[in-house]
Nucleic acid binder design. Sequence first.
DNA 1: CGTTTTCTTGATAGCTCTCAAGGCCAGTGG
DNA 2: CCACTGGCCTTGAGAGCTATCAAGAAAACG
Lengths: 252, 252
Amino acid sequence: MQLQTTRATSHCRAARREAAPEATAGAQRIAAALELIATVLEPQRRVVHAGDVIYRAGEPFSRLHILNSGLFKLLSLSADGREQVVGLRLRGDWLGFGAIASGTHVCDAVAMDTGEVWTLRYDALLRACARHPELMRIVHEAMSQEIVRDRDSLIALCTLPADARVVAFLQSWADSLAARGLRTDQISLRLTRAEIGNYLGLTLETVSRVLSKLARARLIAFNEKNRRDICIPDFHALGAFVQRREAGAGLH
Amino acid sequence: MQLQTTRATSHCRAARREAAPEATAGAQRIAAALELIATVLEPQRRVVHAGDVIYRAGEPFSRLHILNSGLFKLLSLSADGREQVVGLRLRGDWLGFGAIASGTHVCDAVAMDTGEVWTLRYDALLRACARHPELMRIVHEAMSQEIVRDRDSLIALCTLPADARVVAFLQSWADSLAARGLRTDQISLRLTRAEIGNYLGLTLETVSRVLSKLARARLIAFNEKNRRDICIPDFHALGAFVQRREAGAGLH
DNA sequence: CGTTTTCTTGATAGCTCTCAAGGCCAGTGG
DNA sequence: CCACTGGCCTTGAGAGCTATCAAGAAAACG
């Protein structure tokens, strides 16, 4: 059992170690994709502020959006009227892929901070893709990445206990920042406990309890005077925390 | 509260009523897409049997697959070695989209029954898409549909209690069959309780208990001598069951 | 400075998992 | 034909985890 824990932990380490050296590479790839789109398609650029709606579920689809900066959330309205956060998007991500099949947007996209959105017509993109294979490669990679990322979060949210869900959220958030060349030692969640819980399928109280427990264990540290900014002194220890819990649960 | 329950239920009804008349339309659209692919690309066709592996996680990506018949499951291997069913695929569905971004397959695809798989090279598909806009539309719609479907299942699995998860699974399964023009009054799950539980993030005992409860409430009926084949006498009642439970839970 | 939102913490209840035992069924071999 | 075996399923009892409810503290906001 000890062996298995060690192996699983080292596996996580390997994945994370890869991310760090490639951070600049990831940021450069995003920058290159944005540059190509800007030169080939001349998208409409728009500055948005917290609360601005990019599109709403039910609206007809004709345009895709690419994020140049800012933080955005995707909201899905379930049949009984409750809102669920189904995704968070950052620089380099696309918005609107889900509407291609049905011709109608299936969720709301809302800005959570000031940022810049590039908008382009889908039919114009298709025509441009026929002329620029590199552009089509970028679009397909973005859609493929969205499929994989959603699948990973589905696994995390369905199989992990509350502690591990919050840790996985923090790790994936840090990974997203690292892939864009941003610093990860002092990260700002920019989400309320209620929004985090909504995203993770937990209540805000449970999220608060888990964060408090992590802080007591010195695995994270809150910023003075602002409990939304946290720093993660040791990613290894954070990952090992949930691994240890899993191993312990499996011992009986 | 009664009003809200009625509204939510009728919403579900509306969605389901749409599905029924469009069943043949959905089947025709799938058939048309398969026909176009067959004529333009001449894919390699292969008959597979239960247990056959189409691809494994980690293998290099070069080909996509389209399902002409059969039932397939997507398995994701988590870091600690447990397998998780992350998707079920039927006629008309594509396999391998998740590998485009990374160039490596991210999950296993395994046949659960005899079926026919069409295989084509991704680079050939891209070249063909440049010549046939209709083909590109089909590919993009398939990727978009996969994004939306995964997102929907994520919401269902993260926010619903065990009863509702199983009901949602039965409904989505029946919808998938209906969209392909198959009968839905007598459906065969072709999955063990353990596989259903794995897919839904539940234990096999919980799945068994929920199915027994649904059978006691006459909302489903097991086939004689085979508890894997069930029939759903009234979809309305099945949907209303979970709606009622939600409303009741919210009363306090 | 007062109001509102957000966050924390505790107590309790409910749901699901775990563990355990047994039943049903198909295939196998005597 | 029947006993045996193994896989799959069902059912029950208890434990653990998370939601719910409630109260108060802290921070943001006008």
